[in-house]
Design a binder for these strands. Sequence first.
DNA 1: TGTCTGACTTGAAACGATTCAAATTGCTGG
DNA 2: CCAGCAATTTGAATCGTTTCAAGTCAGACA
Lengths: 359, 359
Amino acid sequence: MSGKVKMVTMRDVAQASGFSPATVSIVLNNAPLARYIAPATKKRIEEAAKKLGYRPNAMARFLRSRRSQTVGVMIFDITDPFCTPVLRGIENSLYQSSYVPIFADAHNQRTRFERYLEMLLEHHVEALIVVANWLFVDIQLLADLSKRNITAATIGWEVPGDSVSSVMVDNEAGGRLALEHLYHLGHRRIAFIRGPKMLIDSGPRWKGIQKFAHSVGLEIDPSLVVQLPDELEANSGFEGGYRITEELLERKKKFTAVLAFDDLTAFGAIRALTKAGVKIPEHCSVVGFDDVPLSALAAPSLTTVRQPLEAMGNMAVNLVVEGIKASLEKRDWSISRHKMTPELVIRDSTRAMLSAADD
Amino acid sequence: MSGKVKMVTMRDVAQASGFSPATVSIVLNNAPLARYIAPATKKRIEEAAKKLGYRPNAMARFLRSRRSQTVGVMIFDITDPFCTPVLRGIENSLYQSSYVPIFADAHNQRTRFERYLEMLLEHHVEALIVVANWLFVDIQLLADLSKRNITAATIGWEVPGDSVSSVMVDNEAGGRLALEHLYHLGHRRIAFIRGPKMLIDSGPRWKGIQKFAHSVGLEIDPSLVVQLPDELEANSGFEGGYRITEELLERKKKFTAVLAFDDLTAFGAIRALTKAGVKIPEHCSVVGFDDVPLSALAAPSLTTVRQPLEAMGNMAVNLVVEGIKASLEKRDWSISRHKMTPELVIRDSTRAMLSAADD
DNA sequence: TGTCTGACTTGAAACGATTCAAATTGCTGG
DNA sequence: CCAGCAATTTGAATCGTTTCAAGTCAGACA
């Protein structure tokens, strides 16, 4: 029944081709010494390897060469729609570089994060990429990595110090884009749903909004500004947006647009507005932030500020791969912090004010 | 600057505790021989290990024990919202068993699938879980795995033969649930969007629909039955549902409900209907299939047949973990095919017919 | 003929753990 | 006092590669 397939080792290839394991190794890895190997030899070895179906043993290889061809990818919560495109970007770039991702999902739990970190270290990942936007992880924990010669990069989040690279969207520019859009559509009474304090994105986005408002002399009515509570559940944004918008409606203050912290919040807001009989976008425009995949599919489709999520994943991989190369060649190398440019995506949830409607 | 941390090996622990590496290994792994080790010895070794911060080297361990503590997780397209909850289920169960997932995304490409398979084999995954619902992969390819003593399971898809376990939803029951719901709401003129031929789910769902229709004497109007084209893009369901619903509308045939192949198709249909001025659910009910995460968030939220996606991920892990155990203990073990029970989730996209409205 | 160049190739030592057969030790009973 | 046993512990081989210092060998040159 299950005719066990005996593993083909390098020794087998050596035997079959009539050379020594050393030569086989040199040829198959195209090591520096391969310059001196006779072409005929190379050919015979390669043929033997192919004929036998030789597959290098990654573990054994690691033991000598210290290269695992493996990168740890730590996601804080795969349930968050934000993560999927980022993950795609990471996966794709790693694949190009022949690295294999070891996947870890912290479920927003610190202990789980730590346990996974432990496991990743046991598996000797050559680098670590962390996708997150909250802060509760010890800086120490990640800083230790660089001691162990593991380059690390974070996406959507920065750690202080000079040991971890990061890739983020330019939140301030994004906040500005969102408000600018509403402003140019003629909206003046705008409700703002600010992000939870805990998230690193909240501050800069709000700052971008304020700056723009100030630059055009738009007054922000404090009674139209609300803030999401700190929450760890990935999709709490929806619930939060819903509830906070309900409250907003109860205040009976008029507004013609909502600038939500992110897309999920925006969907929550839309749900609440719709329930209250407010039509989107006829009676009220709504703009989100992120451009998660579902934003294009929802009804109405959501105008939002796009984070180039996939590109951010790519970028993080580039950073760590460079880091790996540098440490391999014992070159100096310093971390970098990237701010990606956001982009306004106009869809069906926003609409220009009718000139008379402001009042 | 970067004070390299010297790796702590088992030898170091042996030295520190005053015992031999053999004893250390036995104690730390709680191997069978540990029965004979004096408690005091165990304690001293464990303390030494903790004090030094010893971390076993997974690669070295594999070389002797042939255990990599690694499972390959091959996703056909992470972009498909179907995958996220499944992935969460897989990840969670693997974590419980102290396995680490190596993540591979085939992007729906056969060559990529094969290349990843190669990489996973090089990394000596102990098992493979494949999440997919199309069929173009060589059965041979997966059957080879069992020769290599790698247990495999597929989710959302079955391969012929007796070498690969599978976990699927009971599509026939699901199709039945969907139609039953519409029928009990009073709908009689129902449009059906059948799935692409290429997908294994399409047939059984349709069969369930037909059987139920037959059992209650409901006639299915062939001119209200349309079929999605074969397409590999993960989110093509939305586009497809949109276009095919437009066509349906052009035929001017009346219908009061749409039974869509899956949620994405349903959203496409809703978009087309809304655009044509048909209100959901007032003028037309729509029911989907899958219950992907966004179905709860969309406006209107979608009535759908839920696949227990996370549980399916758990189940697949259970199956392969059992397989691993069996082959470790040289027990006999045979694959199994699971059919999970679907569940109707009633939300806002369906509504009972008003008694007079049928005509 | 003997030595010296290249031009190729290889032996043997790691890498860090696991695994048994075998060693050690201290008793116990004859 | 010693054989034999039970209770612990360990030596040494092994897993499949990589890595260099060192080997071989044919021909060129003096």
